Amino acid sequence: NRTSFTQEQIEALEKEFERTHYPDVFARERLAAKIDLPEARIQVWFSNRRAKWRR
């Protein structure tokens, strides 16, 4: 089942994506704690966001 992201979560994710397309585990963990999502969801979001960026 899909995770629905809040506007705040999307903004935080997009901001980090501007900084780096490949956040390391520490950056992902920090973001996970900040926006209250599992680190695995963040990893998947970045993977999908990079795919979207390449299109």
Rank of each mutant, 00 (worst) to 15 (best):
E8L: 07
A40F: 08
D36R: 10
T6W: 01
W53S: 14
W53K: 06
P23N: 01
E11Y: 11
Q9W: 00
F17A: 02
D36G: 11
H21Q: 13
A12D: 07
E8K: 06
P23T: 02
E29A: 13
F5W: 06
T3Q: 07
R19M: 08
P38H: 13
V25P: 08
A40R: 10
P38V: 06
K15N: 13
E16D: 03
R2G: 08
R54T: 08
Q43M: 12
R28H: 03
E29I: 04
K52M: 13
W53T: 07
E14H: 02
E18F: 08
F46W: 03
H21G: 04
L31C: 02
Q43W: 06
Q7H: 10
R28A: 07
A33C: 07
V44M: 09
I42E: 01
R30A: 08
W45A: 00
E18P: 00
H21N: 04
L31D: 00
I35E: 03
R30T: 05
A51E: 12
R50F: 04
L13W: 00
R2I: 15
E18C: 09
F17N: 00
R30H: 12
R30V: 09
Q43L: 10
F26D: 15
K15W: 08
L13S: 00
K15E: 14
R49I: 01
V25Y: 08
A27G: 05
P38G: 07
R50H: 02
E29N: 08
H21C: 04
Y22S: 06
Q7E: 13
A33L: 11
H21P: 14
A33E: 10
I10N: 05
I42C: 04
N48R: 07
V25C: 10
W45Y: 05
A27Y: 05
P38L: 06
T3N: 15
A40H: 07
E11S: 12
S4G: 09
W53H: 15
R28F: 10
F46R: 00
T20E: 12
K34T: 14
E18R: 05
N1I: 11
Q43I: 05
W45N: 00
F46Y: 04
R54A: 14
E8H: 06
Q9R: 03
L13D: 01
V44W: 11
I35R: 02
A40E: 13
A40Q: 12
T20H: 05
N1D: 15
A40Y: 11
T20Y: 03
F17L: 01
S4F: 07
T3E: 14
A12E: 15
Q7W: 06
T20S: 12
V44E: 13
K52G: 09
E11T: 10
D36C: 11
E8C: 09
K34E: 09
E39S: 09
E39Q: 10
Q7F: 10
K52Q: 12
L31Y: 02
E18W: 06
R28V: 15
T3V: 09
K52Y: 05
E39R: 05
D24L: 02
A27R: 11
F5R: 04
E14V: 02
E18N: 10
E18H: 04
R54F: 12
L37M: 08
V25T: 13
A33S: 13
K15Q: 07
E16Y: 04
R49D: 00
E16F: 09
E14Q: 06
N1G: 07
I35D: 02
S4V: 11
